[in-house]
Design a protein around this nucleic acid. Structure first.
Lengths: 339, 339
DNA sequence: ATCCGCACTGTGAACGTTCACAGACGGAGA
DNA sequence: TCTCCGTCTGTGAACGTTCACAGTGCGGAT
């Protein structure tokens, strides 16, 4: 319990060995749960550790084990976009918790431009992490390709388009979620249903559009499909575009809550009542969904579970497991007032 | 440029030494910018590094230098609260960028409960980081005290109440910001101005209340002050409470945008028009502020600069600088429609 | 009585760096 | 010619672990 050490130096395993009257090796074994340690030795070591305030030096350990006990979370978000994404904090929080419980440190790196990316690769090539967690990686992201050349397991949170077979992932079932809400709009008797998608190089953009088309079939004409970039502003612009193309539309499925908030603003500007004239469906069920007027009917993603599964897969991979199947988790329709 | 190494083993400094025809020591010197290296040797080393794809092993380096090249960011947010805080992503992003440019890794740890806290302290005591960045640390957080016992510099993003003199920080000028918006409400001719504060164990809670009182003086009666906890829901409840206490109030300064969104909902429920009957002022200028109806008049915090300064201070401290003065940065009134 | 295996322990080497030290070389000053 | 100094280089030791190996002692089977 002696917290303040008289010396400047931190206690080492030698100090513990001396204090407990056993050898370095035995201390190491006791600390790492090796079964071949007598109960007497174990107790002595425990006491000595408490006495000296010893904490293992991970650097020294890593040096010999070639394991770092840390993973990197890479955000490959081009610009400040991330800042607008409320899902991110949650993902980060869950992952960090999960990893901490296994005593694995979480290093965060942002890979916005080429320089960033190079830094990430250098860090990983240097062997400073045991694994990589990929967040919001777009189709064609060069990082995904570079990662495959490294002897370090990588798992994505949400599929990396075009690399689904190379990089394992856990994700929400975007396509089925889009089907759920589109079906709901149809059941409500809506006849002319449009959609505002996210960027088509993201799974959320592509898969949700596909789900939309699955339900509407040939009714999903080009005229009723506009693309946004997940920002509120793009939702507003896309909605205006849709209204000018098809003034008689009576419903719109928007690929994210934030864009839906923008769409609601545009609808108001154009004098449409929601949901009377136009029903609006969102996606994500972030905090924003209940803040809008009217509150959004939307699709809840099981983000906590996505994060948990992503981490689980990565840890298993680090422990030498074989490449797992992707995990796709069900979504849920949340009915509020906008549809 | 040889990316794929025939062997499994990563190249070490010995490999570079062999490839460049100089000794280990010279390679090390060349890599670390020691002036006593001939230009010929330097060039040879550079070439060999490129050839072998060598990356320094930080563990080995740390082992001898006693420096890790990484800092920990600790979020001491009790529950899922963080999830609701849109400032967090921004802070994280800026800090991560800033540190990356100095080749310092950012390790993220959440300190929600005692177990978490113990883990953080153990990690730091183990010497695994050169410094600590504190985020949203409340007054009386035991972590702040424990940190003072460690030989590792810590800097807070936003003051740690009660420890201002012990833990350096950079923060927005909460008090003056609150004065700005309260003054604005007064200038608009509002007579009975209430406030909803954040928790008083946070600087945002305490200082903004003080700024409010600075302007209103004895007019700031207990009856017109209610406390929330930064959640939307608490803002709604607080507003209802205020309306029942003082039905004739004509303005309210709410300590955060999210709570203000809740307050707006309560006002609507009670049939008050905003800003006609009651003017509402927020604080933060997060994305939410422009999503509400009407959009919020609020105070913008210079969060990017706060993050930058926090990181700067920490890095200087790590490099051996003396304890610096706290940095307080000016806020800005953003006028929208709610007041 | 001898031998074997089991439970446990101690020791030397290795992991990949940096750092302090000592030495080599060449040119300038005596 | 000799010495000295400044520049540059190589080498051994150290950082704090883990791991493989080589014991030791003891109880039970032969």
């Amino acid at each position: 319990m002696t917290v303040t050490n008289g010396r400047r130096r931190r206690p080492t395993i030698h100090d513990v060995a001396r204090a407990s009257g056993v050898s370095r090796g035995t201390v190491s074994r006791a600390l790492n749960g090796d079964p071949y340690v007598s109960t007497a030795a174990l107790a002595a070591v425990r006491r000595a550790v408490a006495e000296t305030g010893y904490v293992v030096n991970r650097n020294a350990r890593s040096l010999v084990t070639q394991r770092t006990g840390s993973v990197v979370m890479v955000l490959s978000e081009p610009q400040e976009k991330l800042f607008e994404d409320p899902n991110f904090s949650l993902l980060l929080r869950v992952a960090s918790r999960r990893l901490a419980s296994k005593d694995v440190a979480l290093v965060l790196m942002v890979a916005g431009d080429d320089g960033d990316r190079e830094r990430v690769v250098r860090y990983l090539r240097g062997g400073h992490a045991d694994g990589v967690l990929l967040l919001s990686t777009h189709a064609g992201d060069p990082l995904a390709v570079e990662l495959e050349g490294l002897p370090i397991p990588a798992v994505a949170c949400g599929a990396v388009l075009g690399r689904e077979s190379m990089i394992p992932y856990a994700a929400a079932d975007d396509r089925e979620g889009a089907r759920q809400i589109t079906r709901y709009l149809v059941e409500q008797g809506r006849k002319r249903i449009a959609t505002i998608t996210g960027p088509l190089d993201t799974p959320g953009g592509l898969n949700r559009l596909e789900g939309f088309c699955d339900v509407l079939g040939r009714k999903a004409t080009k005229k009723l499909i506009v693309h946004g970039d997940y920002t509120r502003h793009s939702g507003e612009a896309a909605m205006a575009e849709l209204l000018s193309r098809s003034p008689d539309l009576d419903a719109v499925f928007v690929g994210s809550d934030l864009m839906a908030a923008g769409a609601l603003a545009a609808l108001r500007t154009h004098g449409r009542r929601v949901p009377d004239d136009v029903a609006v469906g969102g996606f994500d069920d972030t905090a924003i969904a209940s803040l809008t007027h009217p509150p959004l009917t939307t699709i809840r993603q099981p983000l906590e579970r996505v994060a948990e599964e992503t981490v689980r897969i990565l840890l298993e991979l680090i422990d030498g497991a074989e490449r797992p199947e992707p995990i796709v988790l069900p979504t849920e329709l949340v009915i509020r007032e906008s549809a």
